[in-house]
Design a protein around this nucleic acid. Structure first.
Lengths: 224, 224
DNA sequence: ACCTGAACACCGTTCAAGT
DNA sequence: ACCTGAACACCGTTCAAGT
């Protein structure tokens, strides 16, 4: 009796870098950075290690490609017409929200800020600042600082989210614990932090990010 | 004949968390994040794994403690008297330089922004902004944004340094390669990046960081 | 060309056993 | 209390062998 179905099934359709990258992104979204292992990828795609290494140089390459996809998606979706300041806010918020939704993107962008995927980010931030009237001499520093701010803070924010990855009410519980620790501090030694404890509990990361952008834009306006 | 000297020598003095943390920092400084392995630590301190785990909870604990030491050193060394804006620049530059000298600190601070070691950073930034006349309603957002900016950008900068960790002339060679790639771009599609290529080659990270701080401070001045 | 999967050289962490 | 070091359960990556 010949076996009709082989139990260890092999994929019939061919593999591709695109397919592997998509699977990697799914693993990352579902379980965070530690969930992306070659072993997990091999089982999910029901192949062998060699098959993956045939399409992808190594794990870093895989992470970089997955990140490029997300960034590209943000930049094609963002509207930069009309008021330049509005355009800058749109780019910044687009990246913030994408990193918020895919925390692993933040970590990756901090590690590789020269990625080709960021070209479009530099381009739109630079030209929007230009449109805003920033003089030539200050333009490149300002653009660099602003992009660094966006990536840095969004990535920074990622760290917070990652810390409270599990439960639902965990976020407020975690912030509550930090706030409690802060309010227990000696008000003579830490007057500001002591006062800040109340604000910490109710602060919104996204709003704080935006108000940082606004401070930055107000500062840039003085360069005109 | 009794053996006079045992070849596998055992340390005669006791171990301590402080000793372990210092050794960890040395390994990190010398070889980057990947150089800190429990095995390397065990040989360097000529002990066993259990000895280390007796003083330290795990590797994360070790990294956090080493980071705390560096940050504490910065904050005790920084002068925050006189002009509040000067004080803010001093704090920012102090952290930038420390992260530049110990790139692993940047990565760690991005991962754990609620560390007790950062309390003094929040405190001095907050009180300096207060002294600068930032109104109560905007104070906490401004302080959060500024600290995020400092840590985010300094950590971001770490990533660049890490990429060109080896040789001497590597830095300019690497930037030159990126600049060359940028100037090869279609000037119609990437007008800004194309122009920026020249500036990239000669830009100074520290100066760009500082000009970002100044933009931020100029923006904060408008809140008054 | 594309894929398989055993094997290799590493990790961090544990734990029974020693002093 | 403090330390030892073999053992465990993982990693990413390679490579001879298959189709």
């Amino acid at each position: 009796m010949a076996p009709v179905t082989k139990r260890t099934q092999r994929r019939t359709d061919g593999l591709s870098k695109e397919l592997i990258v998509r699977a990697a992104a799914d693993l990352l979204d579902a379980g965070g950075e530690s969930a992306l292992t070659l072993r997990a990828l091999v089982t999910r795609l029901s192949t062998g290690y060699g098959a993956i290494y045939h399409h992808v140089a190594n794990k870093d390459d895989l992470l970089a490609a997955a990140t490029d996809d997300i960034v590209a998606g943000v930049m094609t979706g963002v509207v930069v017409e009309g008021d330049p300041a509005e355009g800058l806010r749109a780019v910044a918020l687009g990246l913030f929200d994408a990193i918020d939704a895919h925390p692993w993107v933040g970590a990756q962008l901090s590690r590789e800020p020269w990625r080709p995927a960021l070209l479009d980010v530099y381009e739109s931030v630079g030209s929007l600042l230009d449109a805003l009237g920033v003089p030539e001499g200050a333009l490149f520093d300002a653009a660099g600082a602003l992009v660094n701010y966006i990536l840095g803070v969004a990535g920074q924010n990622t760290a917070n989210t990652r810390h409270l990855a599990e439960g639902d009410a965990d976020r407020s519980a975690f912030l509550g614990a930090v706030a409690a620790r802060w309010s227990r501090l000696d008000p003579a030694r830490y007057p500001f932090v002591h006062r800040a404890a109340t604000h910490l509990r109710e602060h919104d990361d996204r709003e704080q990010f935006l108000s940082g952008i606004d401070i930055f834009l107000a500062g840039i306006a003085t360069l005109r």
